[in-house]
Design a protein around this nucleic acid. Structure first.
Lengths: 111, 111
DNA sequence: ACGACACTGAAGTAGTTGCTTCACTATGTC
DNA sequence: GACATAGTGAAGCAACTACTTCAGTGTCGT
């Protein structure tokens, strides 16, 4: 339904930050709380909460607050969008490889 | 280990900008010059050159200056790094799907 | 040689980002 | 009820980003 470029824009932007990828790595070991994320990352819970908003916004993470604890976990649908983008572009850079081969065969003639 | 090198950091950051992805889209139609990129993008050649430095830095684009014209083309190796990162992380969010399916089923659209 | 062309380098700027601190609410425990 | 715990909201700040303009440098056509 959402095939706008804004989707992939937010997705790449979210993944472009090392702290956010570190959060994803931590969540790969299983769901955990905001405070338990902040510890190993060496930043405040406020900072983690801000990152989580961004990660949730592009469906890389899903969070659910039960009582006073917000439990965070990996949300696969965001990654699916990423894979879709790559799949859509793979043919192009594969053909770039072919073109390189052609260029090597014909050597020159570009302008 | 899946400890992210600086490589993937620059890669995601490069792809996080819509103008840079637009440059890649233009280059998908074949190699072209800096000036010919600047036109459809509606920005100055200086801005394009700055983007190209970033794209070259993470091997998404390769450029070659012949005479006074710098010819830019898709460089597949950067995309290969991206695919490698995804391949390394896919199992994690697939197991997240399993965990989710085991826990409960909220309605969420996944194509 | 001269001017048009393609690009480069430096410097500046408005807007964004990642993080902080402080004050606050809501929940669990005694 | 009192206190600690878990997280939220607002405001502020230093660093960064994407662009610009202006002044070059090198190259091509005539």
């Amino acid at each position: 339904m959402t095939r706008s470029p804004i989707d992939i824009d937010r997705l790449f932007h979210a993944l472009g930050d090392p702290t956010r990828r570190a959060i994803l790595d931590l969540l790969n070991h299983g769901p955990t709380s905001v405070t338990r994320l902040a510890g190993p990352l060496g930043i405040t819970v406020t900072a983690v909460a801000q990152h989580l908003l961004i990660l949730e916004d592009c469906d890389l993470v899903r969070t659910e607050k039960i009582g006073r604890v917000r439990t965070c976990r990996i949300e696969p649908s965001g990654f699916a969008v990423l894979e879709k983008w790559i799949k859509a572009h793979r043919s192009h850079w594969e053909s770039a490889l072919d073109r390189l081969g052609d260029a090597l065969a014909e050597d020159e003639g570009l302008g």
